[in-house]
Design a protein around this nucleic acid. Structure first.
Lengths: 154, 154
DNA sequence: TTAATTGGGTACCATTTTAGTCCTGTATAA
DNA sequence: TTATACAGGACTAAAATGGTACCCAATTAA
């Protein structure tokens, strides 16, 4: 299904929530309440986002979380890789030359290219886009034909 | 990691193998050998591909598998959804109006758009592309900026 | 018509991943 | 100094995934 994990989904929702009130400091409890998810789970997600450098945290009374940089400079790819690790479609699209099946595979290169295209796409979507509650205007048909993978092939 | 499952990866490799010799009928054993994967696993994958209508199968002696249609008319999205189900990034990007968190989520619409963009991308990549052993020429920078999610947002 | 070949279907098990919880420690502000 | 709030890690339960085995059905060729 090429699906995001549930935690990643949570992370996006939480980040969007923070992005809508960028000046305030948000406690884990506040966010959990706003987003209707269990506190410990939200907390865990927040910690991962801090570790990835997307959020800054402040301990103690009046502490909480806030964006480490403007929402327009945080991408969907950032959020996804904060929770799931680098965006890559196959094992071999991460580490170069690790796959022992490379010889018989004959698909790796092209998968990597597809993977790169998806990553680029996800990098072009910012948290500001995601947090925007008014549906964004995305032309249904992308000009993807212009990618023109081919040359060879039929 | 937004990763394909291993079976999906196998499916792509096997499909590519068949695509390179489209006129022959391929037994599960042959393919397993060519691709260096255990026979039962390959067999399971093949069955899924048949059920999805991407392969035709012929029982009995001299039987085997072959493409149900030309490689240029089978897309990466076809192969992925044959194994993993429909391409969708989040639970809610599949079924409309199922998510009870919709009210507090405020991200669903935009995720769906992103999901659609990825699906479109995957539909533009054909098995013929994947099977082509010579690295395809894919411009590293896609013209994705033209998606222009925004209008609103910063 | 029978035997050999080859896919079809199902059920099962082991492993890994994911999700969720809890507990203890540490920093900060009032 | 005390209440607040994050940090980190350990732990458990549940689910998905991957892999295997077994038996049935269809087809072909002798």
């Amino acid at each position: 299904m090429l699906k995001l994990s549930r935690l990643t989904d949570y992370a996006a929702v939480v980040m969007a929530q923070i992005a809508r009130h960028p000046s305030a400091s948000h406690t884990a409890a506040d966010l959990a309440g706003a987003v209707q998810l269990p506190h410990p789970t939200v907390s865990k997600t927040l910690k991962m986002l801090v570790k990835a450098g997307l959020l800054d945290s402040q301990r103690g009374a009046q502490g909480g979380y806030r964006l480490a940089r403007p929402a327009s400079h945080i991408t969907a790819a950032d959020i996804i890789s904060a929770i799931e690790g680098p965006v890559a479609m196959t094992e071999c699209s991460q580490a170069e030359g690790e796959c022992e099946l490379a010889a018989t595979c004959g698909v790796a290169d092209n998968w990597q290219r597809v993977s790169l295209a998806i990553r680029t796409l996800l990098e072009s979507v910012t948290l500001a886009h995601l947090a925007d509650t008014t549906p964004i205007k995305l032309p249904v048909q992308l000009p993807i034909q212009t990618i023109n993978l081919s040359a060879a092939s039929a």
